[in-house]
Design a protein around this nucleic acid. Structure first.
Lengths: 211, 211
DNA sequence: CCCATCAATTACACTTGGTGTAACAGTACA
DNA sequence: TGTACTGTTACACCAAGTGTAATTGATGGG
């Protein structure tokens, strides 16, 4: 199939149509309250076609997850010279403040992406799965860079720490946005969070929680 | 319902019977190749009863997960005076060598617990879920001990690092056991792994992978 | 000892996510 | 124009899990 072919165009259109239709329905009524049959009907497509494009119902919600994966990976592979991996992740976490406007917008909707996910077991599971995959990809990149021998547990541990930190800081930021206040102040508080977290990671967990 | 009542006795027996029957079938033929209907039939019980005791089919495999949770928690709450949390987790990981005989035994079985889980998406998902719950419980304990304000991301990050380290070291140990060799040597190698990992965690991730 | 109550189990009908297959329709391309 | 290819469809099917009302047997009081 050629890249610019008519077939591929139509296929992508169908995929997008299904995803959009599904997410509109999910937002309006909640994940569990919408059946795949309904989505198919609303998108004027057969149920089988839905499952041809998205292997599970959950994938209809997470079909944009590759972006996050790519970002995390870039933090390792594309970092400037003299930057440690930790530095790079800190920078990435600091840059999370750029997401504040989007979070604000999400709060207005009756059911934002995160309202959708949080509180729904199968979606939360899927979320963990995505995080796990990101961790694994990152661990592989770390192992390659460190020249670690196969089976070395360290890259994995470092990766899971970094991804965990990123996630926790993101969540904290969202919480701050939910609590309200000017962007300035939220940004300041978030940067302080980031420095505190990466300060600890930089000097070791040994003394926690005392030191 | 009284604790020692006949009703509760029978209920526990039924529960145990179902779990045992299910796991025997899983080991013999694999998780996906056994239906809940079959399990119910083999245990001479209705399908509904199976689901009354175990909310999902996966729970039939993981119904012992509470033990690990308790151990991780104890590493924080019951540690001796002067021991940091990191010390406590290191000790716990060092003690993993005691699991070697069990791992050896598992290897003999055509389908050990881990053969069952690894390679099966839904069981791996369930495994992550269990780990996630352990992390959450540990994070809460850490936050309580640190007197952290609600929403503080640090306890969560520390918890996920520690659980991640424990998991990775456990896996590495299993790998070593699979590769063979005398217990002595495996134990030595494992202890070296543990020291390397906790050495890094103790002095900070900053230099990784250089330093 | 009998009776009322309560909890566990059961039968059964049903929903829904997901798969397999073979036929169909429109694109690609010679 | 004809043929190979590929995405879509209809359709039949499987298995996990739920809701409900009926049944069985344990419990405890009079």
């Amino acid at each position: 199939m050629r890249a610019g072919g008519l077939r591929e165009l139509k296929k992508n259109q169908t995929r997008q149509l299904i995803a959009d239709t599904a997410n509109a329905l999910f937002r309006a009524r909640g994940f569990d309250e919408v059946t795949v049959d309904e989505i198919a009907a609303a998108a004027q497509v057969s149920k089988k076609t839905v499952f041809n494009h998205f292997p599970t119902k959950e994938d209809l919600v997470f079909y944009r997850a590759e972006d996050r994966e790519a970002m995390s990976l870039a933090a390792v592979t594309d970092r400037p010279a003299g930057f440690s991996i930790l530095d790079s992740f800190r920078a990435m976490c600091l840059a999370q403040t750029r997401l504040i406007p989007g979070m604000r917008r999400d709060l207005v909707h009756p059911r934002s992406f995160f309202d959708l996910v949080s509180g729904n077991p199968s979606l939360e599971r899927k979320m963990h799965e995505v995080n796990e995959r990101i961790t694994r990809v990152l661990a592989d990149a770390l192992a390659a860079e460190a020249g670690a021998e196969p089976g070395d547990p360290l890259p994995r541990i470092v990766a899971s720490t970094l991804v965990g930190a990123q996630r926790a800081l993101y969540r904290r930021l969202r919480q701050r946005v939910r609590e309200g206040g000017p962007d300035e102040e939220i940004g300041r508080a978030h940067r302080a969070d980031v420095e505190r977290v990466f300060g600890l990671l930089g000097k070791g967990l040994g003394g926690y929680p005392q030191a």
